[in-house]
């Protein structure tokens, strides 16, 4: 059984489909990693069109109160096991928008972040490093953010409620957007 689970973890690590939530300038650094120079499809990594098909969501840029709702909505629609990568300085500590009235400085208060990539913006080399790191983590079964989210849901929901002023309701199929 343990070997079987290991095999499945290996398969998961070699077939990571990503949803790019390109809120800011991070979108610019993805095409170089995708095309013939770095070619992320070598590792089975592909861009996907909807959250339902994706395994990892990349938040590449600043997070505002408005976009955070969409990010939470997309994250909760993804089938587990799922991972979240905070890409660039903005979702980590606010980056150059740290004193804006509209941005959320720390993404990991509201959603579990599996991997941080620092930089403004991280170049394609850093992207490839991030992907290989994520592959290693998934193969070893270390990327467990989705379990964390289920376990500490009260904490994350409380933080979301404090920010928005009301509950985001998803369980009955309606969104609070």
């Amino acid at each position: 059984m343990a070997e079987w689970l290991k095999l499945i973890d290996k398969a998961r690590s070699r077939s990571i489909w990503m949803l790019m939530y390109c809120t800011g300038c991070g979108a610019m650094e993805m095409p170089p990693a995708m095309t013939s120079r770095f070619d992320m499809e070598r590792f089975g990594i592909m861009p996907m069109a909807t959250p339902r098909q994706a395994d990892v969501i990349l938040v590449t840029g600043y997070v505002t109160k408005k976009t955070l709702k969409r990010i939470i909505y997309a994250y909760e629609q993804m089938p587990a096991p799922k991972w979240l990568v905070a890409h660039g300085s903005c979702p980590i500590n606010g980056g150059v928008y740290w004193d804006s009235h509209a941005t959320v400085n720390r993404l990991d208060l509201f959603l579990p972040v599996d991997l941080y990539v620092a930089g403004c913006m991280p170049r394609a080399e850093a992207n490839m490093k991030m992907f290989t790191e994520l592959i290693d983590m998934v193969a070893k079964g270390e990327a467990r953010g989705w379990e964390e989210y289920e376990k500490n849901k009260a904490y994350y929901k409380e933080n979301q409620r404090k920010l928005f002023g009301y509950d985001l309701v998803f369980t009955d199929g309606r969104s609070a957007l």
Binding site: L7, I8, A11, R12, R14, S15, G44, R52, D55, E76, Q77, M78, P79, A80, P81
Partner: peptide, 15 residues
């Protein structure tokens, strides 16, 4: 690669 993709997809939980 498609075999890996199928194994991964069939082992997922539905949201």
């Amino acid at each position: 690669q498609p075999y890996i993709d199928v194994i991964k997809l069939l082992s997922k939980k539905d949201a």
